[in-house]
Design a protein around this nucleic acid. Structure first.
Lengths: 332, 332
DNA sequence: CTCACTTATGCTCAATCTGAGCATTGTGCC
DNA sequence: GGCACAATGCTCAGATTGAGCATAAGTGAG
């Protein structure tokens, strides 16, 4: 069959593979300078319960996928979603675990940013610091200590490759993702790092995928999640870290008014790095991202700070405002 | 039902909405300084034939969606795909036309870049300049002439809003996407522009979606495509235009060796703008994106140019190499 | 052969942006 | 008042950019 024939057959509705399609949502908030994701408890008694992301079937009654997701999440969590963006569509074998009875299954993942964290809301849902699941991604206190052990294991995984070409390829990947062997750490490569760990057998969720021995230790390789949800989370973090650099999406996580330092803390929380304070303010000022209110903080230690608010107008003005975050280089 | 319950039910496989899932591929090449997409003829005799993108059912026999797409396209087109990336998953109502017999239908769209254009290959498939479908996106010869008419229509669409708030919102969107009313043109907002035209009733494909009068004219609003394929194409172009700025993906479109000017022409073709020649070379040199060969062009008019080739090593070196394209400002 | 034309390539220069740090200003606390 | 701690202002050298000028090295016409 030619492409054209196949296309035509497809477009006339003669589809051969009905599939089970679901939604997964990565719902992000940032309070107290910590990045948080909404998680739920999933899993029956047999396998034990574990953290997972909110997920559900595709709701067909909505005009678009995004609107459907929005309504679904807002109904479930009573959160108003600020910003919503489609993340990625994960297929079967990208995932692990049971196929849904022979059906091919897909998950359409969405990233959503919410402003406030309603504490009560749902019994089984809770906000968790996302670095709980990916501890090696948090460089705010300097190089994460868990990284030492991880690197050692990755290096020995590299060594297990006997084929020199394969070994070389692995070395390149280590350099690219974890900054080993002379590479540099790029905070956006969250997914690539997760996938590398997965392949190297350091991720417990990889069980059943291959028979290799699992080498997971929550202190170093983080807490597991149900199914492939950690992969989805990693995708979300990577995307968000990229996005804040050229679109003012952080403000979707901020309260109506805030101080520049709170804003900086939020950006740092997302990107997992520290920023140079004065330069950060200069950047924000130059870009005209915020405007001053006449309120001033009080009570806290140190000199009170001026409260500012996001200038919605920038969405129309500059081509692509955001933060170009330059991590401050730390001595040791 | 709570989120957690729903999630659990979902994850245990009790899915309620089996859906028809398909793939769509935007396969891009660039030859002779023109950006081209692979198109096929689709549609039966009743509706008339029209251009469409290669599409087909999801192939379940592959480990991941991407690998599946890769195999499928390579089998169909005998093209080796260089770079493949998932674009977006389009839902039903995002699309137009017939639901597939009550099934909810999804299309997972992929972007692929190929190096060479095999001319023969498929009878019904052909490479088409992508600006044929989105003529307002090509600013290489200066402001596209079709834009005058488009803007006039958009402005009158804006005026039809009686509610001042709605009118205001439309004005903002015109500024943001088409640079009207004091905004600036941003070459990455391809999808937003298409969607605006769609809403404004300037896109013939919108028929049946709403009863509004269609105002399409191929010379100004471009040639239509089947279903929502123009939307998919617009998504692809926007994504690619963004990507070339921070990842060296253009090289996936180039032959093994090429001149710097050919490279520039390709980047210009994709971005739809003109670049400053000397600065472009300086950028490429600085970033170390290419290395010289000892071959030199000959035969063409003008001084012969050195042939260069892509330095694969940069993929490992710099954090995120690509082109920051600054359009050269033209006087008129 | 020389000229006109075309493209390649080298180089300059001012304006701006960046990374890093020093200095000063308000507050709460002892 | 003196201290610790943030907020805020300001400087400064080095790198990056945008825009051009100038020169080199081919082709084709006369």
């Amino acid at each position: 069959m030619t492409t054209a024939e196949e296309t035509q057959r497809h477009q006339e509705g003669a589809l051969s593979n009905p599939s089970a399609v679901g939604l997964v949502a990565v719902i992000i908030a940032a309070t107290d300078g910590e990045p948080r994701a909404l998680t739920v408890q999933v899993g029956g008694q047999a396998k034990g319960r574990s953290d997972g992301l909110p997920a559900g079937p595709l709701v067909p009654e909505h005009p678009t996928l995004e609107r459907g997701l929005r309504a679904w999440v807002e109904r479930q969590t009573h959160q108003r979603l600020g910003y919503v963006e489609q993340l990625y569509t994960f297929g079967d074998r990208d995932r692990q675990g049971d196929d849904a009875g022979g059906l091919h299954s897909l998950s359409v993942a969405y990233l959503a940013l919410v402003r406030e964290v309603r504490p009560g809301g749902l019994a089984e849902a809770s906000w968790r610091n996302w670095y709980r699941y990916l501890p090696w991604e948090d460089w705010r206190e300097g190089r994460p200590e868990s990284l030492g052990e991880i690197e050692a294991k990755l290096l020995s995984w590299m060594e297990t490759a006997t084929d020199p070409k394969l070994r070389r390829r692995r070395e390149d990947r280590l350099a690219l993702t974890f900054g080993l062997c002379g590479g540099t750490w790029n905070e956006e490569r969250v997914l690539e790092r997760y996938e590398l760990l997965f392949e190297a057998g350091l991720i417990p969720e990889a069980q059943g995928q291959s028979g290799e021995a699992q080498d997971g230790d929550r202190r170093t390789t983080g807490q597991p999640m149900a199914l492939d949800h950690r992969r989805v989370l990693a995708t979300a973090i990577g995307r968000l870290r990229g996005k804040i650099k050229y679109r003012p999406v952080v403000f979707e996580l901020m309260p109506p008014t805030f101080t520049l330092f709170q804003l900086q803390r939020t950006v740092e929380a997302l990107s997992g790095t520290n920023l140079h304070k004065q330069n950060f303010r200069r950047l924000v000022a130059q870009q005209g991202l915020v405007e001053e209110t006449d309120a001033i903080t009080s009570g806290a230690t140190g000199r009170p700070a001026r409260l500012v608010r996001f200038r919605r107008e920038v969405l129309l003005e500059r081509p692509a405002p955001g933060f170009r975050l330059r991590a401050v280089r730390r001595p040791a």
